[in-house]
Design a protein around this nucleic acid. Structure first.
Lengths: 224, 224
DNA sequence: TAACATAGTTACCATACAGTAACTTCGACA
DNA sequence: TGTCGAAGTTACTGTATGGTAACTATGTTA
């Protein structure tokens, strides 16, 4: 029986059948269990590190035995890779939406940052950004690193745009982006849903504060 | 023979004797080797994670065999604990100096941040802040967590002081500190000495940018 | 130079863990 | 109800690794 990390049970029979029709909803069940597995693995990796987390740990948290995991994932490395991909999907979606925002550079940057930070608070799977990157090897590692570099490059471009249109004070885009993304990435280290602040509260406050640090006109971003 | 990580050799005979007197400088040699060991272990842990780094790895990097390590460190856990302590020593020294600065809140905060970031760029051992905290257990873990909490508390106090004296815009000190320290901590993830920016350059630029985000009068902190 | 402590070595043990093989249980459908 | 594939289990293997035992080499001091 496979069940979710926290409380949500995803047991064999516990999942409501799709409609009442006798239909092959096994695929849907499988999907739900996969999600539970990813969420569980991601939070374990984030908490104890990739090498510090055994497949037995993950299996136990899900309420199944280790070999059962291998019905969902080919091996531990591939699991990590998949999680990194999910994480990057969310990150890229955030920056894409920021880029599309009809505003000047600083505001597009702030929107991207806001959405990025919110995505980090939304799901353990999205937090893998800060996992030991060295845990991955070979071509998959290269692929992840390349995507992350591209992601950062798009943020740098937003900063460059802002400097060009005068909404951001002249600065080194590389350092500026390391700062704001670093602050954002760190969120996954301390944020726990259910605390005093919602993920959206955090994303709002932090993106404003960080934008303020770069804006030519900081008064656009009062903190309270 | 024990040697340093990068190039610096700290071999049995390679260390210049203290003066020419035939004196027991073994203690000094031991000290040097310990430093090399800490530096090496810290960078390995930072790069590959605590569990991802074997004692054989560290020993090989130092040019000795694994059992030789046990002449310097009682066990792997204790090594990690020691590194965390060194890291916190540097961090606390930074905030202490910031607090002592004769200026208003925002400037004291900026100074503390500057020194903190510079300490992170100065030594691998100082970068352990962001290591998997879950790798430590029991009382030692509690001790480290308590020190880190106290460290963050002192930064919050600096923010509170700044709000009180009007140099910092009203804000949630908790979030504000998570932001600036997060940005700072992230430095150890990407900074490599010998690159385009010196540690001091990075610390200067980032501390200004981050202070700017909180200052009531951001024009005090132009970025270039 | 003899003796001793320090630094280091090789060989080894016990355990943890990623991954596999072979078997069982369950649910969907004819 | 009988059959088949999917989901899951127990039992196992090989390797990596933290840590120890026993031994060797070396520099310092009496």
């Amino acid at each position: 029986m496979i069940s979710a990390c926290k409380e949500r049970r995803v047991a064999r029979m516990a999942i409501p059948r799709q409609g009442s029709a006798a239909f092959p909803n096994r695929a849907a069940q499988r999907e739900l269990k996969l999600e539970a597995l990813y969420e569980c693995a991601a939070s374990a990796f984030t908490e104890k590190g990739f090498h510090g987390t055994s497949l037995d740990d993950i299996a136990a948290a899900l309420g199944i035995s280790k070999p059962a995991l291998y019905r969902y994932v080919p091996n531990k490395q591939a699991l990590l890779y998949r999680l990194h991909c999910l994480s990057l999907d969310a990150a890229e979606a955030a920056v894409t939406e920021g880029e599309a925002s009809p505003a000047d550079g600083i505001e597009r940057l702030r929107v991207a940052l806001h959405l990025y930070i919110r995505s980090l608070t939304a799901s353990s799977s999205a937090c893998l950004v800060l996992m030991e990157e060295g845990a991955m090897t070979g071509a998959e590692n290269e692929a992840i690193l390349a995507r992350r570099r591209a992601f950062e490059g798009r943020f740098r471009k937003l900063v460059g745009d802002g400097v060009a249109d005068g909404s951001i004070v002249p600065c080194d885009p590389k350092l500026a982006v390391f700062s704001v993304l670093g602050a954002g990435n760190w969120v996954s280290r301390w944020f726990r849903s259910g605390g005093a602040c919602s993920g959206d509260d955090v994303a709002r406050a932090m993106s404003r504060q960080l934008a303020r640090g770069l804006a030519s006109d900081p008064s656009r971003y009062p903190l309270e």
